[in-house]
Amino acid sequence: MTLSEATELLAYLSRFDNRRPSAAAAEAWSRALADVPLDADTKAAVDAFYGSIPLGGEGYQADRSRWMQPHHLRYHRQQIRKARADLAPPYTGVGGDVRQELVAARQHAAAAASGRLPPAPALPLPGDRPRFETTTRGAALVRAAARVPSRRPELKAPCPYCRATAGAPCRNRRGPLGTIHDVRLRAAQDLADGRTPPSADQLAAEQEQRRAASAAALTTRKDPA
């Protein structure tokens, strides 16, 4: 926030609390909010602060104690942007290296918080049978990502364990997971190195061979003759 923006902000605040803006106050606010611009979200944070009920209720002496400080503005602005970002579509990757993914993820988060992304469509019910649906944001994003093919490099290979297709998240009996099976990570590395990753049937055959070898080894130990 520049000095001129801080001066304009203090003038806007004075409409609510009758404070007397000064050059010293504008300089202090400009330093405290150096990374916060004077935009619609900033003024909406002021409106939210003075339009909300004080935490202390009627005994808080709201008329004399409601005095917005820079940390109040920062908090309410973050809440406004977080609520907007929660409604945006999930980030599904760009298919680049780690640095490119981090840059793209930050750009996606900033666009979602500022309202430049359209809200995510409502999640459809999974079939006609009624089932419990959690309302936590993390599970909602996982379910949404299950319908959007991801370009993350570790999801380019199908999962030999849960048989998830390329671009889809790993699954269990309850639905999509937020983690990736280890065998899929190895399959993605094989694919990146030009090797053919093992299929689900090959993985099952290898596991059966290991079980048979373990059973044979236990039998040999019990009966050395």
Rank of each mutant, 00 (worst) to 15 (best):
S4R: 09
S4Q: 14
E5C: 06
A6T: 11
A6Y: 05
L9Y: 01
L10Y: 02
A11R: 10
Y12M: 03
L13D: 02
L13Y: 00
S14R: 12
R15G: 15
R15L: 14
F16V: 06
D17G: 05
N18S: 13
P21E: 08
A23E: 13
A25H: 13
A26K: 05
E27D: 11
A28I: 11
S30I: 04
L33A: 09
A34L: 13
D35F: 12
V36P: 05
P37W: 06
P37H: 08
L38P: 05
A40C: 07
T42V: 10
K43Q: 15
A45W: 03
A45Q: 01
A45G: 00
D47E: 13
D47H: 10
A48Y: 00
F49K: 04
Y50P: 00
S52F: 04
I53F: 11
G56K: 07
Y60M: 12
Y60L: 10
R64L: 15
R66W: 05
W67L: 15
P70M: 04
P70Q: 03
R74A: 15
H76S: 08
Q78S: 12
Q79M: 13
K82P: 00
A83F: 05
A83R: 11
R84F: 01
A88H: 02
A88G: 03
A88D: 00
P89K: 05
G95N: 07
V98K: 12
R99T: 15
Q100T: 07
Q100V: 11
L102F: 10
A104D: 14
H108N: 03
A110T: 11
A112I: 03
A112D: 09
S114V: 08
R116P: 01
L117P: 02
P118Q: 09
P119Y: 03
A120K: 06
A120M: 09
A120D: 04
A122Y: 01
A122R: 12
R131Y: 04
T135D: 08
R137S: 12
G138Y: 10
A139N: 06
A140E: 07
L141M: 09
V142D: 12
A144E: 09
A145C: 05
R152V: 10
P153K: 12
E154C: 08
L155T: 04
K156S: 13
C159Q: 00
P160H: 01
Y161C: 07
Y161D: 13
Y161S: 14
C162D: 05
R163P: 02
A164K: 00
T165K: 05
G167F: 01
A168I: 02
C170T: 04
R171G: 06
N172V: 02
R173L: 13
P176Y: 04
G178Y: 06
V183K: 04
A188P: 02
Q189E: 12
A192K: 04
A192W: 03
G194E: 01
R195T: 00
P198V: 15
P198W: 07
S199Q: 02
A200H: 08
L203H: 06
Q207R: 14
R211N: 10
A212N: 13
A213H: 11
A213F: 02
S214G: 13
S214I: 11
A216W: 02
A216T: 04
T219Y: 08
T219P: 02
T220E: 10
D223K: 11
P224I: 08
A225V: 07
